[in-house]
């Protein structure tokens, strides 16, 4: 944990989010308590067009509810609506 209480989180972006962010992976320091709060923070910063309700979140390689709390070193992936097949 950094000196000011922020957590270091690694975030991975796919598809539309990757394009809107302009990169596929980053490490950032955040005060966000939950995955939802982190997404809203990043959505505001980067102008993501997809609302939270249409997204899902993976924390440390498993799908989690949006109110999951974040810890130092977590790996977060925001998952846009999928379209395989």
């Amino acid at each position: 944990m950094s000196a000011n209480g922020a957590k270091n989180i690694s975030v991975q972006y796919f598809a539309m989010l990757r394009e809107q962010r302009g990169l596929s992976k980053e490490s950032l320091a955040t005060h966000a308590q939950s995955a939802a709060a982190l997404y809203e923070e990043l959505r505001f910063q980067h102008g993501f067009t997809l609302p939270l309700e249409r997204m899902r979140v993976i924390v440390n390689e498993s799908f989690q509810p949006w109110d999951v709390s974040l810890s130092e070193g977590d790996e977060v992936v925001f998952v846009p609506p999928v379209a395989g097949g």
């Binding site: 796919f14 598809a15 539309m16 394009e19 997809l50 993976i58 992936v77 998952v79 846009p80 609506p81 999928v82 379209a83 395989g84 097949g85």
Partner: peptide, 26 residues
């Protein structure tokens, strides 16, 4: 196939004849 389309994190970007493109479902 229905579950794969719903649950597996795979995304599809379409490129159109007019030069435009878009992420399906997004």
């Amino acid at each position: 196939i229905d579950e794969v389309k719903k649950r597996v994190p795979i995304w599809k970007k379409e490129h159109y004849s007019d030069g435009d493109s878009g992420w399906v479902n997004c």
